[in-house]
Design a protein around this nucleic acid. Sequence first.
DNA 1: TGCCAAGTGGACGCAATCGTCCGATTCGAC
DNA 2: GTCGAATCGGACGATTGCGTCCACTTGGCA
Lengths: 228, 228
Amino acid sequence: MVESSRITARGGTRADARRNRERVLVAARAVFAERGIDAPMATVARRAGVGVATLYRHFPTRDALVRGAYAQQMRTCTRALTDALAAPDPWQGFRHLVETVCALQLEERGFPAAFVAAFPDRTAEYTRARDRAERDFATLVRRAQESGALRTDFHPSDIAVVLLAHCGLATALPGDGAASRRLVAYLLQSFRADAANEPLPAPAALSLRSLPITADGPQGRPSRSSRH
Amino acid sequence: MVESSRITARGGTRADARRNRERVLVAARAVFAERGIDAPMATVARRAGVGVATLYRHFPTRDALVRGAYAQQMRTCTRALTDALAAPDPWQGFRHLVETVCALQLEERGFPAAFVAAFPDRTAEYTRARDRAERDFATLVRRAQESGALRTDFHPSDIAVVLLAHCGLATALPGDGAASRRLVAYLLQSFRADAANEPLPAPAALSLRSLPITADGPQGRPSRSSRH
DNA sequence: TGCCAAGTGGACGCAATCGTCCGATTCGAC
DNA sequence: GTCGAATCGGACGATTGCGTCCACTTGGCA
């Protein structure tokens, strides 16, 4: 995984190309934050100070751009999962993981949509990473349940429910930390074993990979017409 | 306000016009369910078997069409609130209200977006209805808290958090009853007074009317490019 | 049955966005 | 400093959706 390109001495790509790529990513995050993940590609290019063709050369599709823009955040998520597994108290690890991912969804507007959009991604690398994340998370859940803190009827697929719900909230109220924290706190409390006073309905049993997001995905903004 | 048209005896409008209006509403629900609330107006018109101009005459803006399409569901919501207030056990009323609205959000795809989009509506009628709903709901909350079933730190604005989160879930997983029920069950359990084992963060204190939805609203679908 | 306004439908002009093509420019090795 | 190649950026044609205009049809009262 070291030999991706070896033309120009070190780094592989030309210096200006690399610089432009970075500029595009910064601009993409800014534009996505302001106008949503559907913002015109040309807007991103203009903000980055590059031409449209340059943008398309670096990122042939919108998905590629989105993935590139939030790669850092995605890495943070997987690291949070690793940390959670390493934590001495599995419940604290679990709790911290949920809070971290939700905070991430909140702070970088546009990331929530990118996050759920990445689930069904077919890229080999992503498939592997996702499968591993699923396995790790299931392990974390089992440990937290064995420690007696997490209710035993919590199902690993519940995390998808939580993330999708929080994604909806974060998208509707961008940057509203109070609402986000409130929702997360309610949910975490109901996940505690000592809060389980009633049986739950059957788990949704979603596989992260089977989310039908890309099929038609979250529907667009309620409206914005009245331009007359 | 009676003499908008007085040519045709009873009803005010001509029979075929009324029939077309109904056909448009049915088509709108169908199309919104399939392609989201942003579906082209022309598609709705075609499905209804009418021309675009006819559609625009009945519903000058997309918002008007959306409002018309889900007026019935909105009425169901307000009735559910009335019923909840009338219920002998305020907690059961509260619980039933939440479940009803969420079930409604789930069954009629496109309704969730319409529902949250309607919050900041400036129509006089809607403003009045919304204010009344807010007052009634606050009353319901107070009663449920006094009965000892609802935790005392539940804030009326939490309902907005719940509905937005559930809306996100319902939009991402249209028709997935299992996920919806699961989320609602978790949340309802955490609202019980006997589940309150930790203090909550501060409430989001949203007013339904101040939701910044229309400003830029829920961001579009994660992507769908790759048309090449 | 005949009249006329309300109602209807499709075509049209406008605007936004997409993704590609091509000439000009810049990089960096020699 | 020079040259070849990679890169750049704007323009372009195509597609899609919006909302209006206008000529035709239809409903229902006289």
